[in-house]
Each structure stands twice: as structure tokens, then as C-alpha cells.
Design a protein around this nucleic acid. Structure first.
Length: 438
DNA sequence: TCTGGGGTCCTAGGACCC
DNA sequence: TCTGGGGTCCTAGGACCC
């Protein structure tokens, strides 16, 4: 905690949905839901129009469809989100070198670490207003909420209070009165399980939380969680903004449309996951010592099995072999809902066993994992960018029964016409380039 | 026809070592 | 007629975040 509100937290409003509305003029002002479009998908982001129907993040997609059947349901274009995010993070780095991204749509900035500037209230508010205006300009119409406060915690609380499309500064000295009336759930780190425990202790608000001793909270939540929560309840937070955070783990997992119970099929999927994870490992220039296999059962319970090797590796056949052997130790006859492979214990130098003189993973591995797959029906994900030789740029409105329906419009075009094609129409192709589907 | 995917951090028990 | 005590590593599970 410091005596100026010089920590900034920025949160892009309904980010994924907003990018879709920007690039698809016919969806502006309408409910848009981005998420998994399969049987078992969940909502990633709902536009504010969709939120008025009670649709929110992490909600099962079938529930979202029930609540808001007329919404546009899109699969998501991470290339486009990454591009927009990059523009925003670039603007933040112009303010200060100390920028800590939390995700594609969120970051902290330590304004006291930037060039010499006034950090008084008016100057900070002007800076935030200017930032928001430039952000909207640079991203083609996205909006962000900005919070300013004397700590990470207060900046985050402030941006939450500013939503959507606003600015909020919590004046140093007013932290306690700002947070006291908020629900305890508003404190980052208090999720459903912790809130359940707190409710049993009679806690509903942050003010209630302040009545509990640190010892009581430690007894209920453990040492780390209890001490941390007690401090935040009194707005005590001196965590620094950290620009560089090293990667601790890399993983890939997949929930299947239907549970799988064939060991050979599962082993093949484990291999594929291992190859993709290794490709990312190699791309990052890292080597891993621990391989983890994750399985979710039909009842949604899950188990993990891990093995730590003597040396660190970046070879896909090694990681795949370990994943397979971990899978061998599980009885999959009951069915498997999700299979994941991950690596941890990451280091920057190979520590292969000395007797193993083979070179680290070849470029071939990376190419294989990244090579574009041939076009299959499932590539016509709703919302994906396509090109037509005659009609130009458009996006997938829907597909099925060997057909794909496309709306031809772009961010600049205004609402455009809809046409339907055969799914294998050679005139139609997935768009490649910076805004392609990820 | 419930409940994604990519992460981080914490806890707890057992092995192992000095 | 027993059982010390830290520190570290590994494994497994769980809470939480976006």
C-alpha cells in the first residue's frame, strides 16, 4: 500500500464478445455468446446484451441457449483476441515498463515506475481517461474499465466498481470505507468453497470479515490463505507489480463430446497432447522434468498422475511415453470424459541422462504439431473467419448437413448479406493471417 | 442433457537425508 | 517398551482466477 493511487488495473469489457461485435457489424447491439459450441461447452464471455438474460461466464452452453436462444453463439477466434490484446498491452507499456498482464484482457500497471509524472488524483484520472480514449481508437472500438488505487487489490476493486466502460479511483485513505460494504466474495481468492466456510462463520461482507481474528481465519482456511485474507480485509496489500513471470507449467487437455473407454484411442490422444505440449515447450526454449496426466471421469471427479524424470527433456517421444505409462496405470473402462497431458519442473537447459547423446527435439516436431490440419467439417466453427473467391471476407454463421452458411461483412463494411454453400465448396476457405481462427 | 481450458498457488503425507 | 527434528523433494488433490 502506498500513499498515491498509482497502481492501475485495466479490464477490457466483455472482451471476446466485444471483438466479435467489432468484426461482425450485424451482431452489434445484440446478445453474443462466445464459448465451447460442442455438447459440453461452457460460456467464455457473454456480451452485456446477453448478460441481461442471465447468461454469464462458466455457465454450461446448453443453459445459455435456454436462457437466450436468440443470441449468436460463437466458437471464438483467439488469433483476433491475441492481436487486440497485444495492441492494448502495447499502450500500457507506453505508460510504464512495469506492466503485469493477468490474461488477454487484464493487466496491472505500476505508474510510479514510469517516467516522472504527477501522481495526484486529477493527473491520474486524466491519464486514465486518455488511455481509454486511445485504447478505443487503437482497437477499433473496444472499451475498457480502469481502476486506480494504492495497491493491486484496491486497483482491482476499483476497476470492478468502474465496470462497464468507466474509471474509478479509490483515494488513498478511503480504502477501508470503500471495501467494508462489499461482499466478502469480492476479495480475490474468495471463491465458492471459501465463501461457504465464511458463511458458516456468519460472514457476508468485508466488514464482517474484519470482525474475525487472523487466528480464526488461519484455523478455517490454512496459514497462507488465512493470513492473506485477513490482510486484504483491512486493505493491507504490498504485492509488487511484476512484469516478468516465468512459465511454471504447460498443459493441454480435451473434454470429449462423449466419454471414451478404448485404451488404444485414449493412448493415441495422449500422444497427440504430448506432441502439442512438447511443441510449445520447444518453442519456449524450455525442458521439462515432470510429466502429468489428468483424467476426468464420467462423474466429473478427476485424478492426476505424475512422474518426475532424472533429467529434463524436450523430446516428444519421451513425454508421450511417460504419459502413456501413467495412463496404463488407470482403469478406463468406466469411461473418460477428459484427458490432459502437462509438463512442469521447467528449466532452460537440457539435463538429459549423460548416456543419451541424441540431439534435442528437431524442428520437425514443431512443424508437425503446428502444421495446418486439412479442412474438416468441424473447422466451420460458428464465428470463424472465411474467404470466398467471389464474395470476399465473411464469417461462419452456421454449418451442418454438408452446408455452411456465411455472412459477408467486416468491421468496416456494415451489416452484410448471408449466403449458403456446400461445406466442400472450393471457392470457400478458412481465412489465414493475423485474425484467423486459433 | 449439468459443469472448458489454461494456468497459479497451497496443503498434506511420505521418502529421504543429515 | 518403541517412536527426534528439520529441510527438501515428490505426489496427489483442491481452490481459485480469467
Amino acid at each position: 500500500m502506498r500513499d498515491t493511487a498509482s497502481i492501475l488495473h485495466l479490464d477490457l469489457d466483455a472482451f471476446f464478445a466485444a471483438v466479435e461485435q467489432r468484426d461482425k457489424p450485424s451482431l452489434r447491439g445484440k446478445p453474443v455468446i462466445v464459448g465451447g459450441v460442442g455438447l459440453r461447452g461452457v460460456v467464455s464471455t457473454a456480451s452485456y446484451e446477453a448478460r441481461t438474460f442471465g447468461v454469464g461466464s462458466a455457465m454450461p452452453m446448453h443453459e445459455a441457449r435456454r436462457r437466450c436462444p436468440h443470441a449468436a453463439f460463437l466458437g471464438g477466434r483467439f488469433g483476433a483476441y491475441r492481436q487486440a490484446s497485444g495492441i492494448v498491452m502495447g499502450l500500457l507499456r507506453e505508460l510504464s515498463p512495469l506492466v503485469e498482464p493477468l490474461s488477454l484482457d487484464e493487466a496491472f500497471v505500476d505508474l510510479a515506475a514510469g517516467p516522472p509524472r504527477s501522481l495526484d488524483e486529477d493527473a491520474l484520472l486524466a491519464l486514465a481517461a486518455d488511455l481509454r480514449a486511445r485504447l478505443t481508437e487503437a482497437t477499433g472500438g473496444l472499451t475498457a474499465s480502469v481502476g486506480l488505487g494504492s495497491s493491486k487489490f484496491m486497483a482491482k476493486v476499483a476497476s470492478e466498481l468502474a465496470k462497464p466502460d468507466g474509471i474509478r479511483l479509490v483515494r488513498p485513505g478511503t480504502e477501508l470505507e470503500t471495501i467494508a460494504p462489499l461482499p466478502a466474495r469480492a476479495i480475490p481468492g474468495v471463491g465458492p468453497a471459501t465463501m461457504e466456510r465464511l458463511t458458516r462463520l456468519g460472514v457476508a461482507t468485508v466488514a464482517d470479515l474484519q470482525e474475525l481474528s487472523e487466528a480464526e481465519l488461519v484455523r478455517e482456511l490454512g496459514k497462507s490463505g488465512g493470513e492473506h485474507l485477513h490482510a486484504l480485509a483491512f486493505a493491507r496489500d504490498d504485492r509488487p507489480v511484476e512484469a516478468e513471470r516465468e512459465t511454471k507449467s504447460i498443459s493441454m487437455e480435451d473434454t470429449f463430446e462423449h466419454d471414451l473407454s478404448d485404451p488404444a484411442v485414449l493412448a493415441a490422444i495422449a500422444d497427440q497432447h504430448a506432441a502439442k505440449v512438447t511443441a510449445r515447450l520447444v518453442k519456449a526454449g524450455l525442458f521439462a522434468r515432470t510429466v502429468t496426466l489428468k483424467v476426468r471421469w464420467p462423474d466429473f471427479s478427476s485424478v492426476t498422475r505424475s512422474r518426475t524424470l532424472n533429467g529434463a527433456t524436450d523430446r516428444p517421444e519421451v513425454i508421450a511415453q511417460v504419459a502413456r505409462s501413467l495412463l496404463d496405470g488407470l482403469d478406463v473402462r468406466q469411461g473418460v470424459r477428459l484427458l490432459g497431458v502437462g509438463v512442469a519442473g521447467l528449466v532452460e537447459v537440457a539435463q538429459e541422462p549423460l548416456f543419451d547423446l541424441e540431439a534435442p527435439a528437431s524442428a520437425r516436431v514443431v512443424e508437425e504439431a503446428e502444421a495446418p490440419v486439412s479442412r474438416r467439417p468441424r473447422d466451420w466453427l460458428p464465428g470463424a473467419d472465411v474467404d470466398h473467391t467471389e464474395f470476399g471476407a465473411g464469417w461462419v454463421w452456421g454449418s451442418g448437413l454438408g452446408r455452411v452458411t456465411v455472412r459477408f461483412e467486416t468491421a468496416e463494411s456494415g451489416p452484410g448479406p448471408v449466403r449458403t454453400f456446400a461445406a466442400d465448396d472450393p471457392a470457400l476457405s478458412m481465412r489465414v493471417g493475423p485474425v484467423s481462427t486459433d
